[in-house]
Simulated scan of single mutants.
Amino acid sequence: MINWNGFLRNYRLWQRRWLYPLISLSVAISLCLSTSLPSQAIDIWQIIRKATEIAPQVTQVIQLSNLSIRDEVELGKQMNDELQQEVRLSRNQQLNRYVDQVGRRLAAHSDRANIPYTFQVVEDEAVNAFATVGGFVYVNTGLLKVADNEAELASVIGHEMGHIEGKHLVNQMQQRAIASGVATVTGLDRSQAIGIGVDLALNRPRSRQDEYDADRRGLITLTRTGYSQLAMVSFMKKLQGKSSVPTFLSTHPGASDRVLALQRQINSQPSKGNYGLDNTTYKANIRAFLP
């Protein structure tokens, strides 16, 4: 059976990498041909050289190991454009505004508060959240419904921000590029990087080290912001009892190991913060936003 999703993804990647640049080059050559030259003898190589000066660079190479903040944010924007072909972003302004407010409250206390975070809602009943690069965080409507209060939602967003702080996806992209042989000494083609990043964001095999690190970073941000530390633990415990393991926890280490690690971190750095534990108000908001 043909995997049409994979075929369409590869076709779009081919479009970005070859078709669009070739069209640009053709247009540029046409412009050069329409320009009067001093001599009647046409030097085709001169035309091609002029055309390549006019046309955009066919291959944009980036170094994942040395990304500037500006390049990382731009890469995140381009991945966001591609992701909209794979997931359905919510157009509910109230819902997006609410999640954005929670996210920005956390971002102000993040270890990478110098990047412009973008928080978006995905219309999907699966209990999941994910992040790409450059501050882009995505939360499924299914997860919003499962959370009991704002502090639990904040704990998930904080965890995903932890992945961004640790540049986990960037590192995985680099590893994938090297393993698949598409990375060169000069770097990685930007369109290939976008394709690899989107695939990893949606289907990435999360590593044990990355998940522990994201939990640790997320709990620190949650604590600094004044949210209840225990909300991160209660959210994971609640999901443990489900018959099917949510995507958010379908990883190693298991949820029980992560809960133990979080409890040890809380015991070593206790906080009196208890913001966001109002279950009634949160549920009322979510019902209003998601009728």
Rank of each mutant, 00 (worst) to 15 (best):
S110P: 15
T247W: 12
Q192S: 08
E152W: 02
S228P: 04
H159R: 06
N92M: 03
R287G: 04
A151K: 13
L262G: 08
Y227A: 00
P38E: 02
N114R: 09
K237G: 08
S110K: 07
S30K: 07
L75W: 12
R216T: 00
T59G: 15
I48D: 09
N114T: 05
L239K: 07
I42P: 14
V133N: 01
P56Y: 05
R97G: 13
N96F: 08
T186L: 15
V122K: 07
M232P: 09
I164V: 11
V102C: 15
N66C: 05
T52W: 09
D278R: 06
Q209Y: 15
G162D: 03
A113W: 09
L67H: 06
F289E: 09
C32F: 05
A41F: 13
A284L: 06
T225Y: 05
R91E: 10
A113K: 11
V137N: 13
T132M: 01
M1E: 12
A28G: 01
Y117N: 04
M161C: 03
I42H: 13
S268Y: 10
L239M: 14
V73D: 07
Y98C: 14
G276R: 12
R206S: 11
E125R: 07
L200F: 03
D213V: 00
S24R: 01
V170Q: 11
L202W: 05
E125I: 02
V137G: 05
A231Q: 04
A51F: 04
S271Y: 10
S68H: 02
P56D: 06
G254F: 06
R88S: 13
V139N: 07
R176C: 03
Y11V: 01
D257E: 12
E86M: 15
D43V: 04
L19P: 05
K242C: 05
Y275R: 14
T184A: 14
E160P: 08
K77Q: 07
A183N: 15
V139R: 14
S256V: 02
G276V: 01
L188C: 10
G76P: 08
Q84M: 15
T281P: 09
G218M: 01
L262Q: 10
Q174W: 07
T225I: 00
Q263L: 12
S36Q: 11
T281S: 11
S180A: 03
P291V: 00
P270Y: 04
S36D: 09
L219S: 03
T223Y: 07
D71R: 08
E74L: 11
V185M: 11
L260A: 14
K77C: 09
Q174L: 06
D111F: 06
Q63T: 07
N203D: 03
D199E: 11
N10M: 07
A154I: 01
C32L: 04
N80L: 14
T221F: 02
H168E: 03
